[in-house]
Amino acid sequence: MLRILKTDACQPDAAALKEAKRVLLAGGLVIVPTETVYGIACDPAVPGAMEKLAAAKGRDGGKPVARLAADGAQVKTAATHWNGGLEALAEQWWPGPLTIVLETRDGWTGYRVPDHAVAVGLAQACGRTLALTSANLSGEPDTKTAQEAIASVEADLVLDSGPSADQAIPSTVIKVDGGKIECLREGKIAFADVQARFFKGLNPEG
């Protein structure tokens, strides 16, 4: 049975985060707010959790799912390569609406550090990155309230902290391969700004 836990957007309730962690460790799905849209998360380390997430989204289980990180340090540890450009992006837009696709030991994976205390608090509580995707059926509009997310996807627990944003604008998604940067989806942050910051970080004296 779906449970809804109300929590403050700026100071999330520790008991709510603890319960969400318990659900995730049991292989369940949790709807969680971010500063852009509501998302649905699972623990990718739990067998069967990623398949359950794909089924809830109604999409091919082989499609990549971004990871929710508590901070840039978690991402840096997972990345195969890290450089000054990535460091500059992390300093400028994490936490924030930027997803960076990097090469890791498990292949190419996207990472995001949302500018939202509930989402970051959940990743901190779990002690590792979580799989996070938008809380809507594939092809359907993004959701910006817990009620919209509940109506769109099936989950085991909902962390409801009110509307995520006035406009449900998703994160900008980029791919970084060494000194090359590619825009996979332009969202809340203009790619031109991301690109300029990346190359300035690579060549600080340039």
Rank of each mutant, 00 (worst) to 15 (best):
V30E: 09
I31N: 06
V32N: 09
V32C: 15
P33V: 09
E35S: 13
E35C: 09
E35K: 10
T36H: 08
V37G: 02
G39S: 00
G39P: 03
I40R: 01
A41P: 02
A41N: 03
C42N: 04
D43H: 04
D43L: 01
D43P: 05
A45F: 10
V46F: 09
V46K: 09
P47V: 11
P47Q: 14
G48K: 09
G48Y: 13
M50I: 11
K52M: 06
K52E: 11
K52V: 08
K52L: 11
A54R: 04
A55F: 11
K57H: 12
K57T: 08
G58P: 09
G58M: 07
G58E: 04
G58H: 06
R59D: 10
G61L: 12
G61Q: 14
G61K: 14
K63T: 11
K63I: 14
P64D: 07
A66M: 11
R67S: 07
R67W: 04
R67C: 11
L68C: 05
L68R: 04
A69Q: 00
A70N: 04
A70G: 11
D71L: 06
V75M: 05
T77A: 15
A78C: 10
A78H: 00
A79N: 08
T80P: 02
H81T: 14
H81L: 14
N83D: 11
N83V: 02
N83T: 03
G84C: 01
G84K: 02
G84T: 06
G85S: 05
L86N: 00
E87M: 01
E87R: 04
A88E: 06
A88P: 01
A90Y: 00
Q92D: 12
W93L: 05
W94M: 08
P95N: 07
P95Q: 06
P95C: 09
G96A: 05
G96E: 03
L98E: 01
L98M: 06
I100G: 00
V101P: 05
L102H: 08
E103K: 14
T104S: 08
R105D: 13
R105P: 05
D106I: 02
W108R: 14
T109M: 13
G110A: 11
G110I: 00
Y111T: 03
Y111H: 09
R112H: 10
A117L: 06
V118T: 12
V118D: 08
V118S: 08
A119F: 02
A119V: 05
G121F: 02
G121A: 10
A123W: 00
Q124R: 15
A125Y: 03
C126P: 03
C126Q: 01
G127I: 03
R128H: 15
T129Y: 01
L130A: 01
L130I: 01
L132P: 05
T133K: 08
N136P: 14
L137I: 10
G139M: 13
E140L: 15
E140W: 15
P141I: 10
P141N: 12
D142H: 15
D142Y: 15
T143G: 09
T145V: 10
T145L: 11
A146S: 14
Q147E: 15
Q147N: 12
Q147F: 13
A149E: 10
I150W: 04
A151N: 13
S152H: 07
S152G: 12
V153I: 13
V153H: 07
E154H: 13
A155V: 10
L157Q: 13
